Computed example of a mutant assay.
Amino acid sequence: MQLLDGKALSTKIETIVLSGVKEFKKISGSVPGLAVVLVGHDPASAAYVSMKKKACDRVGFYSVTHEMPEDISQEAIENTITMMNNNPNIDGILIQLPLPPQIDTTKILELVDPSKDVDGFHPYNVGRLTTGLDGFVPCTPLGVMELLAEYNIDIKGKNCVVVGASNIVGKPMAALLLNADATVEICHIFTDDLKKHTLNADILLVGVGVINLIKEDMVKQDAIIIDIGINRADNGKLVGDVDFENVSKKCSYITPVPGGVGPMTIAMLLSNTLKAANANALRRV
């Protein structure tokens, strides 16, 4: 069994981004800018935004966080996004999800300029991903693909089972795998007999937020396990959706939690923002 070390790869990617920022600054005289909208006081969201801010600082991005109260109005968020869309110093816009129930999340995501949609959630970018065209891809599944590539794991023709069908992870993950010529199956909360499907996976990718959902008897020998879940156990420890202790004895590769997919998500956000900055600079020439 070999660990897929996302922490080490994310450091490598940050070094590449840092070099790209220096080059960008030399040519344009400015630095890439990332703006984040954070609504409410959810501890997990706040911690994640803080990690993003620190990563931006490490690579030399300009970053700003728009912190808004839980009872914010739809109009107020829309006005902020419009302001960021029109701000030439902002290359990437990130809406930290989830948003409170009074907010129409779909409308908010659709309002973000697709050229600044570094999270890849705008329908324009979703469509480009689905049809295999270049655009912005959601950071977590993009990070998974980078991790597989780093370890020279061949995806072509492999049976890949994605557990979880969210717009943020499951669906884009399946699209990326399909674009890479894998045979893809998506399982979700209504899937009958999950074990029957997971046992067929050469590569099993799980992101549903259920501790120890995937047990040792649900994976075949030498399968590759990508644990995208992140949960806090009763003892306060961060754990994934896979029973790591037992499944790791049976698989060929596995991502740890923490230290696997998580760091890759932030690394891909940095990479996407630099990509947006370069494209936006070209448009302004």
Rank of each mutant, 00 (worst) to 15 (best):
A8F: 02
L9P: 09
L9W: 09
S10R: 10
S10I: 05
S10D: 11
T11C: 12
I13P: 10
E14C: 11
E14A: 15
T15H: 11
I16W: 00
I16G: 03
L18I: 00
G20M: 11
F24D: 07
S30A: 15
V31N: 04
A35G: 07
V36Y: 01
V36S: 14
V37P: 01
L38M: 08
V39Y: 03
P43A: 14
P43R: 10
S45F: 00
S45G: 13
A46I: 12
K53M: 14
A55H: 07
D57E: 15
R58N: 14
G60Y: 04
G60A: 10
S63L: 02
T65R: 04
E67W: 01
S73P: 09
N79C: 04
I81N: 05
N87R: 08
N89C: 07
N89G: 12
D91I: 01
Q96F: 01
L99F: 03
P100K: 07
P100E: 02
Q102V: 01
D104G: 07
D104H: 06
D104Q: 08
T106V: 13
K107A: 14
I108V: 15
V112C: 04
V112T: 08
P114A: 10
P114G: 12
K116H: 01
D117N: 10
D117Y: 00
V118F: 00
V118Q: 03
D119N: 06
G120C: 05
P123S: 11
N125W: 00
G127D: 04
G127Q: 04
R128Y: 02
L142E: 13
G143H: 03
G143D: 08
V144E: 10
M145A: 11
E150Y: 05
Y151A: 07
D154R: 11
D154E: 14
I155A: 06
G157W: 00
N159M: 12
C160H: 02
V161H: 05
V161E: 05
V163R: 12
A165P: 00
A165I: 04
I168N: 06
K171H: 05
A174K: 06
A175F: 03
L178R: 09
L178H: 13
N179Y: 01
N179T: 01
D181V: 01
E185P: 01
E185N: 12
I186F: 00
I189S: 15
F190L: 06
T191L: 03
L194F: 02
K196V: 13
T198G: 01
L199W: 01
L199F: 03
N200T: 15
N200L: 15
A201V: 10
I203S: 08
L205C: 14
G207P: 05
G207M: 07
V208R: 13
V208S: 04
G209C: 12
V210Y: 07
V210A: 13
I211T: 12
I211N: 06
N212M: 03
L213H: 06
L213R: 07
I214S: 11
K215F: 00
M218P: 03
D222F: 02
I226R: 10
D227S: 11
N231T: 09
G236S: 12
K237C: 08
G240S: 10
G240P: 08
D241A: 13
V247W: 06
S248M: 12
S248K: 15
C251A: 15
I254R: 07
V261L: 10
P263E: 07
M264S: 12
T265M: 11
M268A: 12
M268E: 11
S271R: 14
T273C: 14
L274K: 07
K275A: 03
A277D: 02
N278E: 14
N280T: 01
A281Y: 13
A281D: 13
R284I: 02
